[in-house]
Design a protein around this nucleic acid. Structure first.
Lengths: 183, 183
DNA sequence: TCAATAACGAACAAGTTGTTCGGTTATATT
DNA sequence: AATATAACCGAACAACTTGTTCGTTATTGA
């Protein structure tokens, strides 16, 4: 609605991302955020109940973007990635995550994995359930659905973390290959 | 050495465990710990540099215990678990972790997974390298060693978390079965 | 017994979170 | 263009953390 709201919200989110690229989540203080964003203290708390909510909102924006890209398969030029090849879903995710490297991936590096993971898992559950990805068909019959979902998303996250930390030079395709074929 | 030191150390560790069973790591404050342990503030900081170090020490004690149990295969009565059956290592771990359920497993429930995981991974690396577990032989040739180690320990942790959260009634044997056969 | 050493606990600085409130500025509407 | 509304400002605030200091007291091991 109000232009001021959007502006302030974006300033805060960008300041947050900027700070997250320099230090870990728990090391970022509200004081630093409002200083970086050039925003009043009361304003911050008018927008975000707490720092955790800020992270959650950030995750929400990121995943909304990523998953929107995945679901919009009817776009013209984007058919390159959005095809019916069975393992394209995860490649797609790896590609998007790699693109925004410095901004997004820092969210995985430190102790704040928990919140990120929680949000990611929700989305991934949806994705796995609603898709016909090869991953879904690979589920062994002797494990419960929830175990399999949990397993897949955990492996995805750990692969992502390993990628960033150990071998950032590898391509999304190679990482996808590791991911799919170890499962 | 000094009896007082051991006593204080144990009081602090026990107070910490007690508090961890009620609330999450980040919600536990040093003030609460020293109050529960009946120990002076300065004393706490004489023993542990910081709260993170306290957790690390706790992890160290736990894992030393668990891994000692695994390595001491020459005990008399304990041959039940410590055999040369290929997948006994992880079953062993699941059993030990299940035993101390309320104390240890709470460490995995919340946002402090990171520190726990870090410490666990160190130990697991050692274990995987030094053992001839079936897990080691299952490594696909196309992935690097470090990726595989990371993968296995991640899956172990996520299985553990799923176990606690979703199906605590399952036996260690069943969980081990899930774990081994999805990898 | 006695010197060393650990624990006590109060007080402290420095930093953090989240709230309040009166004043200022931008916005949407008329 | 004028105005009511809503957002922002920012200073001040209470409450709580962390980690340190230091003089005093109690325990230990030799």
């Amino acid at each position: 609605m109000d232009r001021r709201q959007k502006k302030t919200r974006e300033l805060i989110l960008k300041a947050f991302i900027k700070l997250l690229s320099k230090k870990s989540y728990s090391a970022v203080t509200v004081g630093q955020i409002i200083q970086t964003a050039n925003v009043g203290r009361a304003t911050f708390y008018a927008h975000f109940e707490t720092k955790d909510y800020l992270l959650k909102e950030l995750c929400k924006e990121l995943f909304d973007h990523v998953f929107d890209c995945y679901l919009n398969t009817n776009n013209d030029q984007q058919g390159l990635f959005c095809c019916d090849a069975p393992d394209s879903t995860f490649l797609h995710l790896f590609i998007h995550l790699k693109k925004n490297d410095n901004n997004i991936l820092k969210l995985l590096t430190s102790e704040n994995t928990h919140l990120f993971m929680e949000y990611f898992q929700e989305n991934l559950n949806q994705l796995i359930i609603s898709s016909n990805d090869i991953i879904k068909q690979k589920k062994p019959s002797f494990v419960p659905d929830s175990y399999w979902t949990n397993h897949v998303s955990s492996c995805f996250i750990s692969t992502l973390k390993w990628w960033i930390k150990e071998s950032p030079a590898l391509s999304p395709e190679e990482i996808t290959n590791y991911f799919i074929n170890t499962i």
